[in-house]
Amino acid sequence: MAWNEPGNNGGRDKDPWGNNNRGGREQGPPDLDEVFAKLSRKFGGIFGNKRGPSSGGGAVGLGVIAVIAAAIWGFSGFYTVGEAERGVVLRFGKFYEMVDPGLNWKPTFIDDVELVNVQAIRSLRSSGLMLTKDENVLRVEMEVQYRVSDAQKYLFSVTNADDSLRQATDSALRAVIGDSTMDEALTRGRQTIRANTQTDIDKITDKYDMGILVVDVNFQSARPPEAVKDAFDDAIAAREDEERFVREAEAYSNDILPKATGRAERLKKEAEGYTEKVVNGALGEVAQFEKLLPEYNVAKEVTRNRLYLDTMERVYSNTSKVMVDSKSGGNLLYLPLDKLMNQSEGSKQQMSPSSSYGIELEKTENANPTPAAPRADSGRQGRY
C-alpha cells in the first residue's frame, strides 16, 4: 500500500508515521523523538501503565524483555560436533579447549567454535619444471594425500597449514629430483623418488608441527619438455625392448639350465655306476686269481691247460667260424658256416625252374671231386 493513500476520513491522507495531511498540505519526515515517545507510550500501555516509561510497570516490561533476550542467547549457544570432526573453542579469540563429537554449548559472543574434519582424506597437487642431477629438465607431477591429525596445531601452528604443506611438497620434490638422474625419474627410480619425497615431507611437517599426517604420495608423471619429447619416447621404447629381451633370455635360461643340470647329473650317475661296475669286476677277477693261485702252485700244467681251454671257449663262442682238425689227411679244414648259411637262404629265395637243372649238374660234377692240394699250414693243428 502507498504511504500517502487517499482515505475516506474527511479526505485526509495517511502516512506510515501516523501523521495526517490536513488541508492538502505536505509535511516533512516525523521527528525521531516523537516516534520514540509514541513507542514508549505503547509499551507502557501493554504492561498496564499509561503514565510513561519511568514508572514501575515499565521496569517490569524491561525485565521480561531481558529474560526473553537471555533465553534466546542461551538457546543460540547450542551446537553439534560431527563424528568425524573436532571442535576448537576460542574464548575472545584465544584457544580455550578441544570439544569432542556430540551436542555442546558455548556462551554466544564470548566463545567461538572452529570445526575441523580429522578423518577426511585431503589431497593436493604439486607440479613444475625441475632440474635433474644430470642437468636435464623434466616436468614432474605429484599428488599428496593427507589428513588432519591434530586440529589445534592445524589451525594455529602455521598461518595456513594447507598452503604450507603445498610449499613443503614442492621443496621436497625438487630436492629429490635434483639428486636423481633423468633415467631414474623416467623409468626404474620412480618408486625410490616417491619414497624419498614422502620421507622429506614428513620431516618438514614434523619440524613445523602442523598437525598433518601424510597418508600417501603418488608420483603421477615425469615427462620431458615438448621440444624433445619424441626423442625421449624413442629412448624409452628402446629401453623397454632391452628389458623385454633380458626377460626372454632369463626365461630361456630358466628353461634350459634345469634340463642341462638333469642331464649332467644322469651322466654323472652313469659314470659312477660304470666305475663301480669295472672296479667290482676287477676286484672279482683278482679274487678269482687269488683262489686259483694255490691250485696253480699244486698243479701248474693242469691249471694252465684249463685256463687256456676256458679262454678259447669264450673266444670261439662269439664267432661263427668253425675249425675242424682232420686227423686222417693232416689237413686243417675251414668251414665258413656263416657264409654257407647266408648263401643257402639266398638261393632258396631266388630259385627258379630254369636254375634247378644247373644245380643238379653241379651236384653230379662234384660227386667225385679231385683231391685238394695240401695247404701250407697243413702241419698246424687247431685245438678246440
Rank of each mutant, 00 (worst) to 15 (best):
M1T: 09
W3C: 00
E5D: 05
P6R: 14
N9C: 04
G10V: 01
R12T: 00
K14H: 07
K14C: 02
G24K: 02
R25F: 00
D31P: 05
D33S: 11
D33F: 09
E34D: 15
A37L: 12
A37R: 15
L39W: 13
R41F: 04
F43H: 06
G45N: 14
R51A: 14
G52A: 09
G52M: 05
G52N: 07
S54C: 01
G57N: 13
A70N: 07
W73T: 12
G74R: 08
T80L: 13
T80H: 05
V81Y: 04
V81H: 10
G87E: 03
Y96G: 03
N104P: 00
D112S: 15
V113T: 12
V113A: 01
L115T: 00
N117V: 03
S123N: 13
S127F: 14
L129T: 08
L131N: 09
L138T: 06
M142Y: 00
A151G: 02
Q152T: 06
K153N: 15
Y154C: 00
Y154A: 01
N160K: 07
A161K: 03
S171F: 07
A172C: 04
L173W: 03
A175V: 01
T187C: 08
R188M: 04
R188K: 08
G189T: 07
A195Y: 05
T199V: 10
K207Q: 14
L213A: 08
V214M: 03
N218H: 09
F219N: 04
Q220C: 02
R223N: 10
P224V: 06
A227M: 08
V228F: 00
F232I: 15
A237F: 05
E243W: 06
F245W: 10
F245P: 00
E248I: 05
A249D: 14
A249T: 05
E250V: 07
Y252T: 06
S253C: 03
D255F: 13
L257T: 15
A260Q: 14
A260S: 11
T261P: 01
A271G: 10
G273H: 04
E276M: 08
E276H: 04
V279H: 08
V279D: 12
N280P: 00
E290W: 01
L293Q: 11
E295C: 02
E295S: 10
Y296K: 06
V302F: 09
T303Q: 03
E313L: 12
Y316W: 13
N318S: 14
V322E: 11
M323L: 15
M323P: 01
M323F: 15
M323N: 06
K327Q: 12
Y334T: 09
Y334C: 03
Y334H: 07
K339A: 14
Q349M: 12
Q349L: 15
S352D: 11
G358M: 14
I359Q: 15
E362K: 12
T364G: 05
T364I: 11
P374Y: 13
R375A: 09
S378G: 09
S378N: 08
S378M: 05
R380K: 13
Q381S: 10
G382T: 10
